[in-house]
Nucleic acid binder design. Sequence first.
DNA 1: TTATAAATTTAAGCGAGCTTAAAAATCTAA
DNA 2: TTAGATTTTTAAGCTCGCTTAAATTTATAA
Lengths: 223, 223
Amino acid sequence: MNNISQEDYLSAIYRNLDDSGEIKPNLLAAKLEISNAAVTDMLRKLSRDGFVDYQKYKSIKLTSEGESYAKNMLRRHRIWEVFLHQTLGMPWDKVHDEAEKLEHSSSDEIINLLEEFLDYPEVDPHGYPIPDKNGKMKKNRAVVAVTELSENESAKVIRVNDDVKNLLSYITKIGITLGKEIFIKDKLEFDGSVLIVIDKKEVNVSSKIASNIFVEKIQQSVR
Amino acid sequence: MNNISQEDYLSAIYRNLDDSGEIKPNLLAAKLEISNAAVTDMLRKLSRDGFVDYQKYKSIKLTSEGESYAKNMLRRHRIWEVFLHQTLGMPWDKVHDEAEKLEHSSSDEIINLLEEFLDYPEVDPHGYPIPDKNGKMKKNRAVVAVTELSENESAKVIRVNDDVKNLLSYITKIGITLGKEIFIKDKLEFDGSVLIVIDKKEVNVSSKIASNIFVEKIQQSVR
DNA sequence: TTATAAATTTAAGCGAGCTTAAAAATCTAA
DNA sequence: TTAGATTTTTAAGCTCGCTTAAATTTATAA
């Protein structure tokens, strides 16, 4: 390919597919923050080049070629994120934007060398799995959003959505990192927010934020 | 700035300034492999934006802002080269092209972190000095091209031009690396080529290549 | 000095990727 | 079922960075 714009489209499509593996042009336009008309335009090109299945007024699917390409972009992105965070010590709420630029400018050769240097990491700094050279990717661990937890449950943070603007920097402020234990002290019906305990401090977290933090429940030990 | 094309122009201008700190549009067009007309076009924009001093039909100069910008691009480029070669083990004849892409996609923050990680390298893998954060750069070491050596002189390779296509991969084939000692066995008048000894093997090197290899003479010990 | 060559600019035009506005198709809810 | 809302496409137009061709300026060499 060799085209930043087309790569961005493929990435955005892949990241936002619905349960049936499709995405509507309208949502894609919103994610890319461009007009619907521009999306229509580009879809014709991506279709012409064999990356998407596209028919007028229909939802968009990726062809298998498009999917491999998108998955490879995801691989590049996440490997760069690991490098930036782990090797260079960049905070996890900054690596997404930087990786977004780097992923367009690096050959597969660099990515493979980086992967080796990093000793084949399995997840990025936000807990998302990294596709291997052949596009194989571990399934996301079976996690639930914090909104799904009940009162008095404890859980361990496994993954955090890195796609939503400013979410991460807020999450960082209240002390959440991967692996951290949290305790649900209270769930507030009227706005869906959750009162959680982190590091012995109580924080009220809005439902929007809680729905983007994914955890594994910790079995309460019987005393 | 935030513009790959303009960054490429500034880099190319800076890298190819003549002794009086100027470059002609014609040469710039050749280096960038585009038409003279395109250069004229872009020069107006770079001038409008305060990066170059430009008057119709005159040679191009960089403003101080343009020079800082270009020097920073050089810094980014060379730090990436060191990383690719030293940390990832990429051959020195491949790092230039890869760094050319990465240099446009990395914030100063990444570059500064990389520099620290690499422990403040002074030269890139081809022996060129790396500007520091403030744009300060060690002078190139006082070297001479291999074409300047006389018969029976020994010398140590200090720097190699990384700008000329395919030069490096050829140089690598005949065994030249930074720090390597060479011995001038013969100079052939009729074509300017040089017969040099590397690792006890004799190689005839054309004057074009020899003029791009820079060395320090080694004082012959008196026996 | 001047004719010719070379360099540079101007002019017209092209494709990519975007925009807004209007038209057409599809969805949704009474 | 259908009217109104929403989504999608089409159409026209913009900027950017490039091209080729022609015009103009500058450099060179007889």
